[in-house]
């Protein structure tokens, strides 16, 4: 398939000749996102089978950006996951019009909550849970794209990435959800992607304003504990999660300062996502 995909923040032209990945893309991306040909593409990527004998035996798949490969080839079964990760790489390395914070982001009524955290903290699960609730929408499960020197976030709408146990949990939350096939035994374990609800896709061009920054920490069998951070702690912890802070220089620093001054920051230990949701809805928005 050849198609221009409109992710909101970026438009990427894809050329995919791997059937398995193509099926997943057609299943997970709404047709109106795939068919928008009115805007110029920002980047060009492709997903192809590797050459030589590997075309036939233990097939390998290669993700390329405009004929340049940034990654080693992966087994065919990982094709679609590697396509999604490749796209994340392209956006975080090239879309320097944003300050990019490694985080999940959701919004309620254009008020956004950012969950910056290292892998394993449960940010994806939390983001996935919230995006499915009435009034909520996804802005990104991977990076908050901040417009410079504001606290506005540009959505980057793509299927969310679920790992291992969270796949089954998400299937309970989204019984009618569109899930990709599972890429088994990747570097991150078993991986599946889930298409966000229609309201997220439809509002992919609508910015939201950051209200709160929450550093989540999934802690099994624990009642929720909330710690409010002071501005210094908030700044330092957030800075650690900014992908392009030094690259953005002064503008990046100003954006971060602006963000800290206009939001509240918390650290939350939780085991029940619903408790986190109640806290956000009742106390923050």
């Amino acid at each position: 398939m050849k198609s221009l995909i409109d992710f909101g923040a970026v438009k990427i032209y894809i050329d995919c000749s791997v059937k398995l990945a193509e099926r997943n893309i057609n299943h997970l991306y709404p047709s109106y996102v795939l068919e928008d040909n009115t805007v110029p593409p920002d980047y060009f990527v492709s997903l192809k089978y590797g050459g030589g004998i590997r075309r036939f035996v233990r097939k390998q798949v290669l993700f390329e950006q405009d004929s340049k490969s940034h990654f080693k080839p992966v087994p065919e079964n990982h094709a679609y996951a590697s396509f999604e990760w490749g796209l994340n790489y392209v956006v975080s390395n090239y879309a320097q019009e944003f300050l990019t914070i490694h985080s999940g982001v959701v919004a309620n009524n254009d008020k956004a909550v950012i969950f910056p955290a290292p892998p394993g903290s449960g940010k994806s699960t939390l983001t996935t849970y919230l995006m499915g609730l009435p009034g909520w929408r996804l802005l990104s499960d991977e990076m908050a794209l901040m417009l410079p020197e504001t606290s506005y976030i540009q959505p980057l709408i793509k299927p969310v990435c679920l790992k291992n146990n969270s796949i089954d949990i998400a299937k309970k939350w989204f019984p009618d959800g569109k899930f990709s096939s599972i890429a088994s035994a990747t570097a991150k374990g078993d991986v599946a992607h889930l298409s966000p609800p229609a309201s997220s896709w439809q509002q992919r061009d609508r910015v939201a304003k950051a209200k709160a920054i929450i550093f989540p920490k999934y802690t099994p069998n624990k009642k929720m504990e909330i710690y409010k951070l002071d501005k210094n702690q908030g700044f330092m912890q957030l800075a650690e999660n900014v992908i392009n802070l030094s690259l953005q220089g002064e503008r990046g620093f100003n954006t971060l300062t602006h963000l800290i001054e206009n939001t509240e920051q918390f650290e939350i230990l939780y085991s029940d996502v619903n408790e986190v949701k109640d806290f956000i809805e009742q106390d923050l928005l």
């Binding site: 590797g50 050459g51 030589g52 004998i53 080839p73």
Partner: peptide, 15 residues
Amino acid sequence: VESLLGKAFFEKSNS
């Protein structure tokens, strides 16, 4: 060797 067995023959797959 690379053109026969694939460019990545001398490298290991990612996973």
